Simulated assay, not measured.
Amino acid sequence: MKQKEYSNGEITILWEPGKCIHSGICVKGLPRVFQPSEKPWIKIEAESTSSLINQVNQCPSGALSYFYPAGKGEKESQFSNSEPQFEVRPNGPLMVYGDIEVKFRDGRIEKKQKNTAFCRCGSSQNKPYCDGSHKKINFQG
C-alpha cells in the first residue's frame, strides 16, 4: 500500500492515502499543517509535536499515524490492549476503534490497529473499507 512520511525530527507522521476517507478532521483541526491543495500537503513544522500527535490520534480512518525515530520514544496507542469499540457514523462508515483482525473469504487475515473505517454505502472501490464514496453518492443512513 502506498504511504508517505513527514518528519520533524521528533516524530514521523505516516499517511496512507488508500485508507483515507477524506473526513477533513485533520484539515479542520490543524489547517496550518494539513493543506490538501499544497504539495507536500502536510507541513509538519507548522505545529508542535504534541499538537500533531493529538490531531493524528483523531483521524477516523487510521490513514494518519505517527512513530518516533529509533531512540526517541515509543508510539502510544489510545486503544492498545482494549476491547474494540464500534460507531456507526451518520451517513458514513462503520468505525471500529482498537486492534482487530479482518478475515477475508480467501482465508487472508489483515491486522488493523487504531481506527478502521468499513464501507456501509456499498460504493467503495476499496471494500470492505471505506474510501469516502459515501460523500460522492450522498449516502443517507
Results as ranks from 00 to 15, higher is better:
residue 10 E to K: 14
residue 12 T to I: 05
residue 15 W to P: 11
residue 15 W to R: 06
residue 19 K to Y: 04
residue 21 I to D: 02
residue 22 H to N: 14
residue 24 G to P: 10
residue 24 G to V: 12
residue 32 R to S: 14
residue 37 S to M: 13
residue 39 K to Q: 12
residue 40 P to C: 05
residue 44 I to V: 10
residue 45 E to F: 11
residue 46 A to F: 00
residue 48 S to D: 12
residue 50 S to A: 10
residue 51 S to W: 05
residue 52 L to S: 09
residue 52 L to C: 11
residue 52 L to G: 08
residue 53 I to P: 02
residue 55 Q to I: 14
residue 56 V to Y: 02
residue 60 P to L: 09
residue 61 S to G: 02
residue 62 G to S: 12
residue 65 S to W: 05
residue 68 Y to A: 08
residue 74 E to N: 08
residue 77 S to T: 06
residue 78 Q to S: 08
residue 79 F to W: 08
residue 80 S to W: 14
residue 81 N to H: 12
residue 83 E to T: 04
residue 83 E to P: 00
residue 84 P to C: 04
residue 86 F to N: 00
residue 88 V to L: 15
residue 90 P to I: 11
residue 91 N to S: 10
residue 93 P to V: 01
residue 94 L to E: 10
residue 95 M to S: 04
residue 96 V to W: 00
residue 97 Y to V: 07
residue 98 G to E: 07
residue 99 D to W: 04
residue 100 I to Q: 11
residue 102 V to I: 13
residue 105 R to N: 10
residue 106 D to P: 07
residue 108 R to P: 03
residue 112 K to V: 11
residue 112 K to P: 06
residue 116 T to L: 01
residue 123 S to T: 03
residue 128 P to Y: 07
residue 130 C to I: 03
residue 137 I to C: 00
residue 137 I to M: 02
residue 141 G to Q: 01
